[in-house]
Design a binder for these strands. Structure first.
Lengths: 83, 83
DNA sequence: CGGGATTTGTACGTATGTATG
DNA sequence: CCATACATACGTACAAATCCC
């Protein structure tokens, strides 16, 4: 999960991109639980807040949904369609 | 800008609601500069991050755009239509 | 062009609340 | 009751863009 803190693109966007790629590549199946925020923190070396910010992007895109106390889930595939 | 920190609705959502109402009521004309984040902090009594989170909601709704170094602007009215 | 003031963007650390199991 | 996991909020620091003198 290489994140370059000095890259042109902000780290939270790099993380969002990386996760989006993994989801769209089918690496993380729909309806499946995704690595927890804590795991993503460790994988990426970013802070909790920054990880959440990346997840916010993907939630806004409709790719992910979060369930308090349960985890992070990939939304059923319905291609690209915003709210 | 009464925000109830103990309300059922999270403060950042209360602020987003309040701003949305002011925009949709035409109180803040399109293309006009909106109170700065610092001003919104003072008006609402919320922290910078929380104000920004409220603004993120409205930006995602397409109601606002931000311009670094310049400020916050109400988007030209094109009714409700996401990306 | 320099430099300060203003304003938004990004990031971290921390504390607390809520939901689930 | 406890552990895990996400949600909200505050404070802080620094970067980048813009504006104005």
């Amino acid at each position: 999960m290489r994140i370059d803190p000095d890259g042109l693109r902000a780290p939270y966007l790099q993380l969002a991109d990386a996760l989006r790629a993994r989801i769209e590549a089918g690496e993380i199946p729909p309806g499946r639980k995704v690595p927890s925020q804590t795991e993503l923190e460790e994988e990426s070396g970013l802070s909790r807040n920054t990880v959440k910010k990346a997840l916010d992007v993907l939630k806004n895109e409709g790719l992910l949904v979060t369930a308090p106390g349960r985890g992070l889930f990939v939304v059923e595939r319905r291609d690209i369609e915003p709210a």
